[in-house]
């Protein structure tokens, strides 16, 4: 895949989402399903890589760029990730006029809710992939549920959860 197309597809996903992970369904649709230049496993790995370190949640876009186009791809991913942020400059100029229009705010909230539904659908194939865990699908299911509970109901940083999940996978392998 050439770098321009990579940029356009990643930028499209980022431009049409309103939070870090909300772009994931579109990334999966374009790169895994349509162009088949990325596997579900690589997409999950990209999410892990993006969430292990500090920085914004959308960083997985950079890892996706790396998987598809190597280091130049990662650079393109970074540019695609930050491009929409600059829209805020003209937005600030028009803020007083439009930002508080109830229908505009309502449309944005509807997009956020739709993003949740899209994420739900995109999580199903990734869950299938994770349940094919060599150490057993029961362990994978436990990790999924514990991760969900910990990240939703506590302020524990996600990299601790990733470290714990890696440790559990390793321990299960060593015991087996």
């Amino acid at each position: 895949m050439n770098l321009l197309l990579l940029y356009l597809l990643l930028a499209k996903a980022v431009f049409t989402s309103f939070s870090g992970m909300a772009s994931l369904p579109m990334v999966r649709e374009d790169f895994v399903v349509k162009h088949q230049v990325l596997t579900d496993r690589q997409l999950s790995t990209a999410v892990v890589a993006g969430r292990t370190g500090p920085g914004p949640n959308g960083l997985y876009i950079v890892s996706v760029g790396y998987f598809v186009g190597g280091l130049p791809g990662a650079f393109v991913g970074l540019i695609a990730l930050i491009t929409p942020a600059f829209l805020i400059i003209p937005l600030m100029k028009f803020a007083a006029r439009y930002a508080n229009v109830p229908r505009i705010r309502s449309a944005i909230r509807a997009v956020v809710l739709a993003s949740a539904g899209l994420l739900m659908a995109a999580s199903i194939p990734l869950a299938h992939d994770a349940l094919a865990n060599p150490s057993g699908s029961a362990l994978a299911a436990v990790i999924m549920i514990v991760t969900f509970v910990v990240l939703t109901f506590s302020s524990v940083a996600s990299w601790w959860v990733i470290l714990g999940a890696a440790g559990l996978g390793l321990a299960a392998k060593l015991i087996a």
Binding site: A141, V149, V161
Partner: peptide, 24 residues
């Protein structure tokens, strides 16, 4: 061994996505 650790983190990604959904 690394593969087993990665498999654990891949499962965590799914939980992360569910958590994102709940928080959204």
């Amino acid at each position: 061994l690394v593969l087993a650790a990665i498999a654990g983190t891949i499962a965590a990604v799914v939980g992360m996505m569910w958590s994102s959904i709940a928080l959204l």
